[in-house]
Design a protein around this nucleic acid. Structure first.
Lengths: 155, 155
DNA sequence: GTCAATTAGTTACATATGAAACTAATAGTA
DNA sequence: TACTATTAGTTTCATATGTAACTAATTGAC
């Protein structure tokens, strides 16, 4: 049996999970480098900032739900950003386990600088697609996300 | 100035780089769990197996190019798979720095088991899309990959 | 041939990450 | 009230990862 007689053809580079992973990593790496260079923030820290900026008083657990980060990553990002002086934590008055998070004035300054940059970046990326294509991509990604969702027992 | 008076609207969950990252991680995590459970292989090891199976005699550097893995990751995956008895390394006769990699019979057995499973999995995933949608997704991802490619100086 | 520059691949080190154990607070139940 | 179960968040520990330094072989210039 010759080497080329493969069970059935699998070309890694045409393999959807692989392509998605490479594309996502390429984009994430570039964005991470930008945020780090400009603001000294990791992607995780930036995600936390994005949701706290949008929803002041949010808790760590809620941040995790909104950002698809696990609680350890959230905890570490929060700790680092408090250290940096960008975040402030208050203990909830109604539930002593729960923390409520707010941007400090310095944090809000960074937030207001970084949001337009993030949006401009996304624009440069998705600007490679027409409006229709962007919507179609959204739709297709939604279908894939649904199919791959951990709730579904496909595999 | 009210909290909601954001510079401009940024909703993380609608942010393309974020959505891509979450989708890709969801899929990768599930596949990694499957390969690990069934064959004790990491995603990186599986990628190496996929290209060596397809191109016996390939070198580590070439594997890196084909799989978008960095050379350290390739080196480690190869070492582990030699240890497992799935890969064999010969030094190139024309270039003593270069190694040539081959699946052992045991490696080929695993390869022949895993390829159809990988393809079936992809099928379950991309089966959520019609043929036309799959092609469209390919096309859109290609445009994004092009726009995000490290050669381009967008950012 | 000899020596600097390049290339293939590995190793060492420092950091990132995730699972599981842990602490502290709350909720539920008797 | 007291006692157990649950939840929020942190810490610990073991592993994964990337950068940079390294070794070994080859190439190219002289």
């Amino acid at each position: 049996m010759p080497d080329s007689d493969n069970v059935s053809l699998l070309r890694l580079r045409e393999f959807l999970p692989y392509r998605l992973s490479v594309l996502s990593n390429t984009i994430s790496t570039r964005i991470a480098a930008l945020y780090d260079r400009e603001f000294g923030l990791s992607i995780w820290q930036w995600r936390v900032m994005a949701v706290v900026g949008d929803r002041p008083g949010i808790s760590a657990t809620e941040i995790g739900q909104l950002t698809a980060m696990d609680k350890v990553a959230v905890s570490r990002a929060i700790a680092a950003m408090i250290q940096m002086g960008y975040l402030e934590r208050k203990t909830s008055e109604t539930d002593g386990r729960r923390s409520q998070l707010f941007l400090t004035p310095a944090g809000r300054d960074v937030y207001e600088l970084i949001v337009p940059i993030a949006l401009a970046e996304e624009q440069k990326l998705s600007g490679a697609l027409t409006e229709d294509e962007q919507q179609e991509l959204e739709r297709l990604m939604g279908k894939l996300a649904d199919a791959a969702s951990p709730d579904r027992e496909l595999w």
